[in-house]
């Protein structure tokens, strides 16, 4: 398939990239893994005039542990996360989600930050980031800001970036010894976007009650949906079968699925209910160190 013509630049450093982005303004797009952008261009659904390819900026490829959070650079691929020991030891929710993102080929190219920036409600990472309460670091030639993920995701394919700005890093809270989470996804085949995805994360207090609960859903609303009502409802409570069933009920009620080839809305609600319950149980087991 053949995209329309475009200008193409390959900066060697972040500063150079930011200069280029400032120059081209809202005509420009960052090209990261290209696993969403290039298909859209080939189908002629997107026709950016300028592409700023960040793949040669190796300084942006990292996963580090800094002050109680994990820092994920803009060039970190999904596959890097799958393989990362730092993620394996420090973020059970990301570790559980990574193998479910796309397929092995796409994971070798696609980036976590690109996925977050893309704000596709069928994308998996933004649910994980919402459940964890992650932060997005955005830079432009004029400065840097740190945006909570819930503010970063504005709408269907719309993020909070200004022209000339790009995502340089994600900051994800690290699990402590009393927290854990997971991501459950129903897909028709590997590489399929979620019919339903559920990210759940629990932090227990010293007495084993729920300190903080994070719960977010994929593919069942115009954006990745944080189920705040259920999060608030669980906070401070003793974890139990009934509590999780109630949270699942809230999630099923709150989501706004569409009927499509992946099934009718009613079905998707039923899956949200079942997977929320299962995910919370699994998150609890992880938080308790049982798995």
């Amino acid at each position: 398939m053949y995209p329309p013509a475009f200008d193409y630049a390959v900066p060697r450093s972040l500063d150079e990239a930011l200069d280029l982005l400032a120059e081209v303004g809202d005509e420009g797009r960052v090209l990261a893994g290209g696993q969403s952008l290039i298909p859209m261009m080939k189908l002629r659904l997107a026709a950016p005039a300028h592409l700023v390819d960040i793949n040669e900026i190796s300084e942006l490829s990292y996963i580090r542990e800094v002050n109680g959070h994990l820092a994920i650079g803009a060039l970190t691929r999904h596959a890097d996360v799958v393989r990362s020991e730092i993620v394996g030891a420090g973020c059970s929710t990301m570790a559980s989600a990574a193998p479910w993102v796309a397929d092995p080929l796409v994971r070798n190219r696609g980036t976590v930050c690109g996925s977050v920036a893309h704000c596709d409600p069928e994308g998996d990472w933004n649910s994980v980031m919402l459940a964890l309460g992650a932060e997005v670091v955005a830079r432009s030639r004029t400065g840097e800001r740190v945006i909570p993920i819930s503010d970063f995701v504005v709408d269907f394919f719309t993020n909070a970036l200004e022209p000339g700005e790009m995502v340089t890093e994600l900051r994800v809270p690290r699990d402590d010894e009393r927290s854990g989470g997971c991501y459950l996804k129903l897909e028709r085949k590997i590489g399929d976007y979620a019919t339903v995805g559920v990210a759940a994360h629990l932090r227990l207090d010293e007495r084993g009650r729920i300190g903080r609960a994070g719960l977010a859903l994929t593919s069942v609303a115009p954006v990745n949906l944080e189920v705040e009502e259920a999060e608030r409802m669980m906070a401070g409570q003793e974890p139990s079968e009934e509590l999780f069933a109630e949270a699942a009920e809230i999630a099923a009620r709150t989501c706004q699925p569409q009927s499509d080839v992946r099934g009718p809305a009613e079905y998707k609600r039923a899956v949200v209910r079942a997977y929320t319950r299962r995910a919370l149980h699994q998150a609890l087991a992880t938080a308790r160190g049982e798995r």
Binding site: L186, R188, P264, Y267
Partner: peptide, 16 residues
């Protein structure tokens, strides 16, 4: 498809 199995088990018409 999963939703068709679910529909059949729960007596819910699922189209498509």
């Amino acid at each position: 498809l999963p939703h068709r199995v679910w529909g059949a088990l729960n007596g819910v018409e699922v189209a498509p």
